[in-house]
């Protein structure tokens, strides 16, 4: 028997704003008549003023990647975010990311690969091969979550591009668009956009490295990095770059955004490590969102078995 567990974010079909209404939302709100209709129909204006994308249910298979810990509630995962392109406040992304247009989407692949080019989202992600992986997420700000991601291994994508032996690193870039992203401005910028991240080739090919296109069984909400994002659970959250538009296979270690902004605070590797403090705060402990106390932070965020060999012989205090 199929038992459907209703999560608190499940809403019934008749709560869904009709697509026509949703698409016309701006002209709708703009018109004075709109207000009257809003009042008469009992719609809360706020619901239409910050429209939410209709997130499709995804088909996926379960995997053994499950730490067997309490999942962070959907509400928290989708409204407590760091996505500076939409503002530096934790609730800014949930508030402003509706401007992002994740469909259609394409990713530019270049560098040392046999098959460079511009790939459509549909060509990159085999929607019939999606799997669920429940990973811990440890933010560099010392808070953490447990999130059920839906996606594909990063290695499956990389193999598709056939990197050559000169490809030592993969560089990633997030979309940079002033129209869609209010945090990307022409005058005062927190970071040098576009947001850049990178992995060493063996890190990228590690089985844990994942490209997520959904969470909690549905498509990724915009604020979580729609339509596709990286998830590297043994590294601090900022390594898991969102809304990827470019992959570049390069020979030298790529310049990454946070490292560029504060090289003494954020390193290229940024592996979760309770023994190496951030210059401004301790990384020994973390606060699991939803809990009041603090937990001990685990080496490589608890993924020691899977990734320790990647850093054999390296001084993790120096290569932080």
């Amino acid at each position: 028997m199929f038992i459907k567990n209703r999560q608190n974010w499940h809403i019934s079909e008749n709560d869904v704003t009709p697509e026509r209404l949703y698409l016309n939302r701006r002209s709708f709100i703009g018109g004075g008549a709109g207000a009257a209709i809003l009042g008469a129909s009992g719609f809360a204006p706020g619901v239409l003023a910050t429209p939410k994308r209709q997130l499709e249910e995804l088909n996926f298979t379960k995997t053994a990647f499950d730490p067997d810990e309490t999942l962070t509630p959907y509400d928290a995962v989708t409204s407590y975010n760091n996505y500076y392109e939409f503002g530096t406040g934790k609730s800014d992304p949930a508030e402003h990311a509706w401007r992002l247009q994740p469909k259609p989407w394409s990713v530019k692949v270049e560098g040392h690969v046999a098959r460079p080019g511009i790939y459509d989202f549909e060509d990159l992600i085999n929607m019939n091969a999606l799997e669920e992986r429940i990973y811990r997420l440890r933010c560099v700000e010392a808070w953490s979550m447990v999130i059920p991601w839906i996606g594909v291994p990063l290695s499956s994508l990389i193999k598709m591009f056939e990197p050559t032996s000169d490809a030592k690193y993969v560089a990633f870039e997030t979309l940079e668009d002033k129209q869609q992203m209010p945090g990307v401005k022409s005058f005062f910028n927190v970071l040098d956009w576009p947001y850049r991240e990178g992995l060493r080739m063996d890190e990228a090919m590690n089985d844990l490295a994942f490209i997520a296109v959904g969470l909690y069984g549905k498509e990724l909400p915009n604020q979580n990095g729609a339509p596709l994002r990286l998830v590297v659970p043994w590294k601090y959250g900022f390594k898991s770059i969102k809304s990827i538009v470019r992959l570049n296979f390069v020979a030298d270690q790529p310049k990454t955004s946070w490292k560029k902004s504060a090289p003494d605070e954020y390193g290229f590797y940024s592996n979760v490590n309770p023994n190496v403090d951030h210059p401004r705060w301790s990384q020994k402990q973390e606060r699991r969102i939803g809990e009041f106390g603090r937990r001990e932070t685990l080496m490589f965020n608890g993924y020691e078995e899977e990734v320790t060999h990647l850093y054999a012989g390296m001084n993790l205090r120096k290569s932080f």
Binding site: S79, K90, S91, W143, R287, G290, F292
Partner: peptide, 11 residues
Amino acid sequence: QPHDLGFNPNE
């Protein structure tokens, strides 16, 4: 009870 301190009340 439900409160307005957000998902990270300490922060």
